[in-house]
Simulated assay, not measured.
Amino acid sequence: MRNQTSLNVFWIMVKRDLLIQWRNWAEFIFRVVMLPFILILTYGYVLPKIGVLPASFPNDLFPGMVGMSLLITGIHGTAVPLSMDFNNSREIEDRLQAPVPVMVTAWAKMFVGMIESWIGALLVLPISLIFMGQSLRLHLTTGNIFLLLLILLLSSFASAALGLLVGTIVKPNQIAAMFPGFLMPVIFTGAIFFSWSALVKLPFYQILVLVNPLVYINEALRHTMLGVGNAMPLTYSLIGILAFTILMGVLGMRRFRKMAVR
């Protein structure tokens, strides 16, 4: 009976947050699309067209754009509302008083972030087809499609877990600094514009970027979408995604519980 109550409360929380996002759908789409649009326009269209980058570069860029949009959207969709709830509106206090375990609220926040991360990844597709469609040479078999869906699911979970952790650390007055101070380093060291194996000439940097979960997400997507041999071995990529998800999830849940009972 209690499990059924927790599930009902979970879905009520999820529906409420999704309804709020639906009411602000234009702002959501603008926020999610603008960064991928600029990067795809510049690195996927303009620079290859004028010969600064090779004509094949958009094909290598595409998996990174999907992974970046998924991760950044999931982090933002979980962290920002959570930070505002805990520090400004205090709206979360009403949820914490519900007759269910405290962590139901955390799971609801993460689930909404996961849904938003999938939407962020999907919104990249039409932009990529418009500007890079002629350069895309994807190698997707039936088996790879199921594997791709699994990778996207694991990656959305990782993005929500990281968003939960960030949301319990960053205060609302620090959100403006989150993009240049946290998200930009994640983006430009996340194997979007290069494969991890291409860093072999920079061994120190190749090891350093392994602290970035986006590297494992993009390498797994690159391996599945392009079928290239120079991507990180898929087993290592999946282990990296799972390890970061567990680590960030455990730390985020602990932080959430600590803030919920303070």
Rank of each mutant, 00 (worst) to 15 (best):
R2Y: 08
N8I: 05
V9L: 09
W11G: 03
R16Q: 11
L19I: 14
R23G: 12
R23E: 11
N24V: 15
A26S: 14
V32Y: 02
P36S: 08
L41V: 05
L41E: 01
G44V: 02
V46Q: 06
V46F: 14
L47E: 02
G51N: 01
P54K: 11
P54T: 12
S56D: 15
F57W: 07
F62S: 08
G67A: 05
L70E: 03
T73G: 03
G77Q: 10
G77S: 15
T78C: 02
A79G: 07
P81K: 07
F86G: 01
F86E: 05
N87H: 10
N88C: 04
E93Q: 13
L96G: 08
P99K: 05
V100H: 06
T105D: 04
A106Q: 00
W107H: 10
K109R: 15
K109A: 07
F111Y: 13
G113H: 05
I115N: 07
E116F: 05
S117I: 08
L123A: 09
V124K: 07
P126H: 13
I130Y: 15
G133E: 11
Q134S: 15
S135E: 14
L140A: 09
L140G: 09
T141D: 05
T141S: 15
G143I: 03
G143P: 03
I145W: 02
L149T: 06
L152N: 03
L153P: 02
A158I: 00
S159F: 06
L164T: 05
V166W: 10
G167V: 01
T168L: 05
I169W: 15
P172C: 10
Q174M: 12
A176W: 15
G181Q: 12
F182D: 00
L183K: 08
L183G: 06
V186I: 15
T189N: 09
G190M: 06
F194Q: 06
A198E: 13
A198L: 05
A198Q: 10
Y205K: 15
L208M: 14
L210G: 00
V215T: 06
Y216R: 09
N218Y: 07
E219C: 07
A220F: 00
M225V: 11
N230P: 01
P233Q: 11
L234C: 08
L234G: 04
T235D: 10
T235G: 03
S237V: 06
G240I: 05
F244Y: 12
G249E: 04
G252I: 00
F256N: 03
R257T: 15
V261A: 15
R262H: 08
